[in-house]
């Protein structure tokens, strides 16, 4: 982990003015599509039908946003996404912390073998097992349920790998001190080591949350009933190719509306998120 966050760098090396100017220009290009989306969302659908260049002209309207309040299912989708992402994140954090602690600190039969097998799991892409997984979930009737949406992500080996590395990085003297008090492994885990892994939890939590939040294929084939749509699937279902009857303005407003909560959370926690993501990298 990066304890040394000092940013003293001789001026000539990196982060000079030219590069920064280019980066600013690039950020404008990056944001142009978003500005376009927002522009579309505050135009009347009928006016857009005649040509989208009307975005650059008055009048603007909030009617699309009002329509969302009345008729969009985005609230429900958002709630589903939230439940699934939070549930999956909690599950991963618990499972990975327990396993990571054991792999890093405890001895038990076949520890190395099991760890290698789990590492091997890192190489199994979700997409490669999704067909078989879909069949399995049929047998147990797990489709169209929160549990069914949360479970697959919890098998990811990434979290276990990450937590094992983090536990290994904690100086051994710390738990050895606790051992003098005759603490049990569980107690050492819970009282002594777990609090020290909070930054790691944040890193893993953010990665897992984003992954669950953005997941597309699994909810597409598992959450097939409207009530269970996640935000990703719900938004996809409303941008039908054929008979695109909800105007561009409404679709844009729905997209803006659906992104706002995550973006707000992101802005509030940005500092932590940045540290967490970088923390994961440095290890």
């Amino acid at each position: 982990m990066s304890k040394d966050q000092t940013t003293y760098r001789p001026e000539a090396l990196t982060g000079n003015r030219t590069l920064l100017t280019i980066a600013i220009a690039f950020s404008v290009v990056m944001m142009a599509p978003v500005a376009w989306l927002v522009g579309l969302s505050i135009k009347d659908n009928k006016e857009l039908m005649l040509g989208t260049d009307s975005v650059f002209r008055v009048p603007y309207t909030l009617v699309n946003y009002v329509n969302i309040l009345y008729s969009s299912q985005a609230f429900g989708w958002f709630f589903n996404s939230l439940v699934v992402a939070i549930g999956q994140t909690a599950g991963v954090l618990i499972l990975a912390s327990l396993a990571g602690y054991a792999f890093a600190r405890l001895e038990f039969p076949f520890r190395r073998t099991i760890f290698v097998i789990v590492l091997f799991g890192l190489a199994v892409p979700e997409q490669a097992v999704i067909i078989a997984r879909h069949q399995m979930f049929n047998w147990f009737g797990l489709h169209n349920s929160y549990i069914g949406l949360m479970l697959p992500g919890m098998s990811s080996a990434f979290g276990v790998f990450l937590m094992t590395q983090f536990f290994k990085a904690i100086p051994k003297e710390i738990d050895e001190a606790a051992l003098l008090d005759n603490a049990s492994p569980l107690r050492i885990f819970w009282k002594v080591l777990l609090p020290l892994t909070l930054p790691a939890q944040a890193t893993l939590g953010i990665f897992t949350f984003l992954h669950a939040w953005n997941d597309y294929w699994w909810p597409l084939i598992s959450a097939t009933r409207k009530e269970m749509f996640t935000l990703t699937i719900g938004i996809a279902s409303s941008q039908t190719n054929f008979a695109q009857s909800e105007g561009l303005g409404f679709l844009s407003a729905q997209a803006v509306f659906a992104s706002l909560p995550v973006l707000i959370v992101y802005v509030i926690f940005q500092r932590h998120i940045v540290t967490a993501v970088s923390g994961g990298a440095v290890k």
Binding site: I94, L98, L106, F108, A157, V160
Partner: peptide
């Protein structure tokens, strides 16, 4: 603490079953 014990494996068991 470091001695190999089956009970230590219980920490891995929940994840392992998911896995």
């Amino acid at each position: 603490y470091r001695r190999s014990q089956w009970s230590n494996g219980l920490f891995v068991l929940p994840y392992l079953s998911f896995f």
